[in-house]
Amino acid sequence: MAVRPAEIAVARLPRARPGAWPVLARFARKKPLGAAGGVLMVVMVLTAVFADLLLQGLPLLVLALVMSAALGPAIHNVVIAISIPIIPRAARVIRSSVLSIREMQYVEAARALGVRHLRIAFRHVLPNTVGPFIVLCTAQLGSAILVEATLSFLGLGVPEPYPSWGRMLSVSAAEYAQKAPHLVLFPGIAISLAVFGSNLLGDALRDVLDPRLRGA
């Protein structure tokens, strides 16, 4: 049942190319699961390529800025606005580490033993990407905090009543800064320390999880 929508979608496609569509439609009717999977694959690949291209061309903050304006002020929207631009970067890191793990001998051994493809992917390859992934997460944590602070500073971030260091710096902090410099200093120091901490953690984790880079 779950594949019906795909079938309908394919059936409804415009008949611009009379040759290709009937073939596809027949394929979809005969092998609905395969067709759905194919469609899904194509969509995913296209999305990945597209997102990758986008990331190449636009600074994280500019994209987040437009996105958070588009989605409106709400805490979950800010999360989306900050995380979506990071996705392609994460995908790239995982892809490159999978590419190298794939060539490892134990993967070859598993393949030689006739272990199924999916099992290799999830049982043997995926767990080994955790190291680089954690490194990536801690590295991105810092920039995510900075982007959030910037968005909030510009009034496009986390809305009231949720407190945000970035917003503490906007509105009235600068206005009262001379009478009460701590209004400007402390939120900024808090942001810096949080990012500093996550960067340090990232460095340390990288040393532990990725020994090749130790000392670098």
């Binding site: 810092g142 910037t150 970035g166 800064a177 001379q178 200093l185 939120p187 900024g188 500093f196 960067n199």
Partner: peptide, 18 residues
């Protein structure tokens, strides 16, 4: 250098102006 990575640029600007 790590401090530079950690400070929001706009905050640095605010502090400079202030």
């Amino acid at each position: 250098s790590l401090a530079g990575l950690s400070m929001p640029a706009f905050w640095l600007g605010m502090v400079i102006i202030l």
